[in-house]
Design a protein around this nucleic acid. Sequence first.
RNA 1: GCGCCCGUAGCUCAACCGGAUAGAGCAUCCGCCUUCUAAGCGGACGGUUGCAGGUUCGAGUCCUGCCGGGCGCGCCA
Length: 609
Amino acid sequence: MSDLKTVLGEAVEAAFAAEGVPAELARVTASDRPDLADFQSNGALAAAKRLGKNPREIATAVAERLKGDARLSSVEIAGPGFLNLKVADAALSARANAIAADPRAGAETVADPRRVIVDYGGPNVAKEMHVGHLRASIIGESLKRLYRFRGDTVIGDAHFGDWGFQMGLLIAAVSDSHPDIAALVEDLNAKGQVTEADRERLAVLATLGLDDLGDLYPAAAARAKTDVDFRNRARRLTAELQSKKAGYYALWERFRDVTREALERDFHALGVDFDWWKGESDVEDLVAPMVEELRAKGLLELDQGAQIVRVAGPGETKKKKLPDGSVVVVPSPDPLLVVSSEGSAMYGTTDLATILDRKREFDPHYVIYCVDRRQADHFETVFRAAYLAGYAQQGQLEHVGFGTMNGPDRTPFKTREGGVLKLKDLIEMTRAKARERLHEAGLGESLSADEFEAIAGKVAVAALKFADLQNFRGTDYVFDLDRFSSFEGKTGPYLLYQAVRVKSLLRRAADEGHTAGPVTVSEPAERDLVLTLDAFETALGEAYDKKAPNTLAEHAYRLSQAFSKFYAACPIMQSEPATRASRLTLATATLRQLELALDLLGIETPERM
RNA sequence: GCGCCCGUAGCUCAACCGGAUAGAGCAUCCGCCUUCUAAGCGGACGGUUGCAGGUUCGAGUCCUGCCGGGCGCGCCA
């Protein structure tokens, strides 16, 4: 079973081929002029020059060949040579019935499924999530679901940031602020191991909560910028942690556990769940042997005290301005810094080791890094190093970058006080608005407190996610609090509302004993609805190919809109039995496709709202 | 300095491999609840797609230059 666009595309391509026009020029698309046609092909225009013919002549010949096709109610030529196709109601009805009978609501799977890893979220130890994490989480989550739905075997990995310089900073800060913990840590360091007898003493670590870390970290990070001694101490501590000195390691385990527990809860509330909660620390044991292997392969080089892998090819250079103002020519991209002059593994080192780890654990065909676009250069370097080292094949690694969420000043979003807006606060604000709206709608009394809260949560998450996902992931956009927590117009709650209306309708039909039956399309609103249902496959394919959930978000919106118009124009319950049965089938198919599309965006639909 | 990205309606964003009349939502204004949830539906208003050239039958889309903005450029991640 295929969508109309594909099926008609084949017929049109065959007709063009008979006139000597290659298939790639004969593409069929949804019409730009719905007033004139359902589908169109611009093949005659594209081919005219190549064939040295008048485009209208080609179009006329092709139209003649298509006239006998029973699926088409009209084939016309317009303007300079556009081929306009209208689908016969019978063909539309047949397609609607097929979609209604399909658990996938008209969506296909890929011909050759792959093993795919989606690396997204990128939460860090001791750092609370802010609005910026919204994009990383929900775009990645959507891509994960999209790839899985298309038939690939997909793993979503949070890639926890738990092993870098920030850990050294945090150890230094905690040592200064908590003398009791500092004493324990030093003692364990001296002993070189944690024995059973020490277990009880570790309880003091439990006094360290995420709030403490959240306070300590920003202060430490700020101090390290100006205080050279402090910075050097933190770097030394980072290296000592990475050599797993007992006391530091025990302290770090507390950091990791307390953060992960909170993050997992927060992500889950957003409908974001990872298959792997791997972190930088999980590949720590791979780093030393990997460095040896890189050395053995002759890729490692000593430079200014650090060990690097050069990834620039011959002739690849850039000009670079030095702090003193002079300009020098250096290789480009920058080399990968593998081991710092302090002996620490760097960001890129763990990224490279992670590639190796994933190859051994899962051997993916394809890895998507859903990470801020500003890290494009970094990934270019890491990927090149991975290809050089043979840890992945050319093209298997891709950085799918997303743009920054800006404030009204067009620079990364800050609250009025100049701080970051915590993700948790954003969600709670939106939730509060949803509660208010639900009360207005009179749902406060008829629902239990739990149900009420669950719906408010779903509405809030839908609002936030859809507000982001309707934008193309690659571009920066202005974060507008009012728009993100808006429930009217092109918003998540609008989509939920349409789904809820269908559910309500179907409940009522069931109560009154009405059953669904074969679809017979006749009204314009019915035609539009079926054509929109048919476009799901195209939207999905594009979202998959371009890694662009906004295409799918747009489809979900159009479907909701088409349904809403149908709902307004075509009465269901009080129409003739055959018409009612047909329309109930259309409503059922719409609901299934809408819920599928929403699910791929990571949005859950409530039963009522 | 070099590189990457962006500039579309008052605001926030779309626009399928270059195609017909550049679309949505918000805001503003006007209609529609005695019938399936008005978080809805219909209508109006709103554009020299930053500027100037070029390629093309045809350019928001491709090329060149300029203006404006964002980001990145080895010991943070």
